[in-house]
Design a protein around this nucleic acid. Structure first.
Length: 874
RNA sequence: GGGCGCUUAGCUCAGUUGGUUAGAGCGACUGGUUUACACCCAGUAGGUCAAAGGUUCGACUCCUUUAGCGCCCACCA
């Protein structure tokens, strides 16, 4: 088997292995009695290429899925993509713009063709990239939010909600993106603090020299003012309520109204009321029956209502013009700098305009059939523990968001997405809501029907993802087997956008929760903690480059180990290189074993029947403990902890100790058994290299299909384990003595051990100690006279002497041992103080006290021996 | 204005329900052609666990306050 490369070449194996897995059907869930384990893969946007955010999600979900699959659960990881309405449309519009095209010139159908073409291309790219990460997802069940089946589910839910009066159409103040020319949901607006201005404007009283001073940050909206409000408790203005003001530049008469809403302290205490372009003013307008004047076009320019002078101007140009005119006509009193929060489109960063518009909404506050509102239901399933959010603290954020959720605006004016299933009769104005395109008006029979132009919010369809992908509304077998799903694993940044929406939509549509556990991962940042951005290529890491360079296994580990749920993680190339080294170490340990062993067909029985040395027992014991611990951690989704533990066990114990010891004394059965089990435990983390090795070992069954080990009572060897730990400590101590005293590392020196009751143990392992400590000869005695001219030390009760004629400086040696004694004394002192403390003796648990007593006794013995050694130096 | 998180070795991070003389990887330093691996091996140095107070027999771990950094939410004209 020595033809294996000295270093593992990931590139040579990964694609081949992935193909083998995929072709074998092992990504598809098996039948079985155990509870199914399901993850719906958060569908990447069909807009381009995979980034590290996808890589971390794929790594985490793949580890979960592989573990459960090996544990014998029917495991389904369902992949797919999202049409990502606004994001995709924007992207294609940008591409069109580069060719001097735009969607309006193309028209709806041609534009959609362009989008479809673009999506098909990026989907192909995404498929390839998901595979590159080693994702063991079931491609036979892949879905796309615009699939026929999913679209059917979308329409079905819409119609049901409409019939249940949970979806309604109405004039409301909405968030309008002037670039996308569409509404946005409240949480699709990013609020950013912007340095703006406070413009103080004179609003003169009719037929008077007096005026009111009004402060505003958006002076152009004055063109839509229909009142001015003051607080009736405000002594300055109280008497003016009911009087009339003249709107500067426009000349419209405005009534001064009184409303407690107005904050006396804020601004000037007088508030211009613009019902069409401000959420608060909209409410005031409704309350006081004010006129609503909309001055904005969909593209952010001003319309006729703004007056001829301003119509057609962009909102910001209009602002400038108005400020200038106010100044010229001496209405502008002052301009102050003012920091305030301004809404921006989360997809294109354009400043959002609030405006009144006729849109479709989901009513989150209306009781449904079971008497609870959508909002209440969504809160309940998390509160009662049906859904468990990891890390737990995000539950609080979730409640807060849900509790304050307002009706969800679901209609978008973009073209890319699910068309709203509503038709308007052109003859009788009947509104027909149906999943199937109607042929004629249900009321008057007219065939002149016009479908609503709008599409649905992309989160409406992705909110159905866990069940629409399983065939709902049909009562499919997949639906019965795999829903509710087990885990929703995604970034905490889309808790509201998506996770909350899924809970809301799924509990309504199916009466089930969408998933049992929500695992939220953090953001991948640069080494210095900045967000990765393509504009900074020196720190922005492309997962595919890293896979090319270091292999997918290394990349996966670098994203998993050291990253806990809900916390951001930093990634940089040295880290990935470090895990590449680890992967290579796995490869080489296997290479070593493969050079030594032919037969890997070893059962537990074979191992137990073989002639087990204490070293074997130690290793089996540790393997068994590690298996139990890792299984436990994985079951709790503590992936980082599990990864760290297997890393340290494999490298620090199996390679550094057991393999080295095997070079002296080898038990084929144990070696084969242990390395195979380690490969199994490693497999969810580093699937490629482990599968590659597995194949070289001539296994018939692929590792991906192998069952997960259980911890076995018969592998517990407590005594042998402790004995070998002592042997290891002695070896370490000898190595340390040598190095500290600058003994030539290559020199095979002699050692004498006064082993006391451990004489037999050390005798059994004399060759191992000699080799690992690089000794020429080793003399083991029960006890004896002090050795002279030696480096001396004590481990537990065992005294170590390294006779080094002529090399020992008694002064230095005295100093060294003296220091060691001091150390022990200090420690001993702490323990003795603790034990002498009545409160400790009275209150600490017995276990702890026993442990402390033990430590004290050991230290006392060690101290005594060291003191004798010190005395003997002449 | 609310809420949350972080602060542990030069760097990146672990540290489970309080019981270690505080750990790992990288980096640094010393030394190594040993039946796999220099993508390696052996060894060493390096931390008053952000600060102050409190609870406790015992605090990196729990509580309070403070400071710095970061994030989320919020219709402050």
């Amino acid at each position: 088997m020595s033809e294996l490369e000295k270093a593992y070449i990931a590139k040579k194996y990964e694609d081949k292995i992935y193909k083998k897995w995929e072709d074998s059907g092992s990504f598809q869930p098996k039948n079985g009695d155990k509870k199914a384990f399901t993850i719906s893969m958060p569908p990447p946007n069909a807009t381009g290429t995979l980034h590290l955010g996808h890589a971390i999600m794929l790594a985490i979900q793949d580890i979960m899925t592989r573990t459960k699959r090996m544990q014998g659960h029917p495991a389904l990881w369902l992949p797919g993509t999202d049409h990502a309405a606004i994001a995709t449309q924007n992207k294609v519009e940008k591409l069109l713009a580069e060719r001097g095209q735009d969607r309006h010139k193309l028209g709806r159908e041609k534009f959609l063709e362009e989008v479809r073409k673009f999506v098909a291309e990026s989907q192909a790219t995404i498929h390839n990239q998901i595979r590159k990460m080693g994702s063991s997802c079931d491609w036979s069940r892949e879905r796309y939010t615009l699939d026929e089946g999913l679209s059917k589910a979308v329409l079905e839910v819409f119609v049901r909600m409409y019939n249940d009066e949970l979806i309604y159409r109405g004039y409301r103040l909405v968030n309008w993106c002037t670039r996308c020319e569409s509404t946005l949901a409240d949480d699709e607006v990013d609020h950013k603090d912007i340095g703006g201005h406070f413009y103080h404007i004179k609003y003169p009283l009719k037929d008077s020299e007096q005026y009111l001073e009004i402060a505003t940050t958006r002076p152009e909206t004055m063109l839509a003012d229909t009142a001015v409000a003051v607080n009736p408790k405000d002594k300055r203005y109280k008497h003016l309520i009911g009087q009339t003001l003249i709107l500067p530049l426009v000349g419209r008469e405005l009534t001064i109204i009184g409303d407690e809403y107005v904050d006396i302290e804020l601004g000037t205490g007088a508030l211009k009321v613009t019902p069409a372009h401000d959420p608060n003013d909209f409410e005031l307008g409704k309350k006081h029956s004010l006129e609503t004047i909309n001055i904005l076009n969909e593209d952010g320019t001003l319309n006729e209502n703004a007056g001829k002078k301003y119509a057609g101007l962009d909102r910001f140009a209009a602002r400038k013009k108005i400020v200038k005119e106010l100044e010229e006509e001496e209405y502008l009193m002052k301009v102050e700098d003012h920091m305030h929060s301004v809404g921006h489109c989360y997809r294109c960063s354009t400043v959002i305009e609030p405006l009144v518009s006729l849109q479709w909404f989901i009513d989150v506050n209306k009781p449904t059939k079971d008497g609870k509102t959508l909002k209440e239901k969504s809160i309940e399933v998390v509160k009662d523990g049906s859904i468990n959010i990891l890390p737990e603290r995000f539950s609080k954020t979730y409640y807060h968001w849900m509790e304050n959720l307002r009706d969800w605006c679901i209609s978008r004016q973009i073209w890319w997405g699910h068309r709203i299933p509503v038709w308007y009769c052109q003859d009788c104005e009947e509104i027909i809501v149906t999943a199937e395109e109607p042929q004629k008006c249900t009321k008057c029979g007219s065939k002149k029907l016009k479908q609503d132009e709008d599409t649905l919010d992309t989160w409406f369809s992705s909110g159905l993802w866990t069940f629409s992908t399983l065939g709902w509304p049909e009562n499919t077998e997949d639906m019965r087997r795999f829903h509710p799903t087990s885990v929703m694993e995604t970034g905490y940044d889309i808790l509201f956008f998506w996770v909350a929406r899924m809970i809301l939509m799924t509990t309504y549509a199916t009466g089930q929760i969408p998933f049992e556990t929500v695992y939220l991962h953090g953001l991948v940042r640069t080494k210095t903690g900045e967000k990765m951005s393509k504009s900074k290529p020196e720190t922005c890491i492309d997962p595919l480059d890293m896979i090319e360079k270091y292999g997918a296994d290394a990349l996966r580990l670098s994203l998993i180990v050291g990253a806990s749920p809900g916390n951001d993680t930093r990634l940089y190339e040295e880290k990935i290189a470090g895990y590449r080294n680890f992967v290579n170490k796995i490869w080489n340990s296997a290479r070593f074993v493969l050079m030594n062993i032919e037969d890997y067909d070893v059962s537990l029985d074979d191992v137990l029947k073989s002639d087990l040395s204490k070293v074997d027992k130690w290793m089996l014991s540790r393997l068994n403990e590690t298996t139990a611990s890792i299984t436990d951690k994985l079951n709790k989704y503590a992936l980082s902890d599990a990864g760290t533990e297997i890393y340290e066990f494999f490298w620090g114990e199996f390679c550094d100790w057991f393999l080295e010891m095997s070079k002296v004394q080898q038990n084929d059965k144990v070696l084969a058994y242990v390395i195979k089990q380690i490969l199994v435990l490693l497999h969810p983390f580093v699937p490629f290299v482990t599968e590659a090795i597995w194949e070289h070992m001539g296994e018939k069954e692929m590792l991906i299909e192998t069952s997960w080990p259980k911890s076995e009572e018969s592998l517990k060897f407590t005594e042998a384990k402790e004995e070998i730990e002592l042997v290891k400590d002695i070896i370490s101590q000898i190595r340390s003595l040598r190095a500290e005293s600058s003994v030539d590392a290559t020199r095979k020196i002699k050692a004498v051990l006064h082993a006391g009751r451990h004489k037999d143990l050390l005798g059994e392992n004399v060759d191992i100690i000699k080799r690992l400590a690089n000794l020429g000869s080793l003399d083991i005695k029960e006890s004896g006279a002090k050795e002279q001219n030696t480096l001396a030390s004590v481990v537990k009760e065992v005294e170590i002497f390294l006779p080094l004629e002529g090399m020992i400086d008694p002064g230095k040696e005295k100093q060294r041992i003296g220091k060691e004694i001091e150390n022990i004394k200090r420690y001993l002192h702490i323990i003795e103080k603790k034990l002498a403390n009545e409160n400790f003796a009275g209150k600490a648990p017995e276990e702890i006290i026993a442990k402390e007593n033990n430590k004290r006794d050991e230290l006392a013995v060690q101290l005594e021996k060291l003191e004798k050694q010190l005395d003997s130096i002449v």
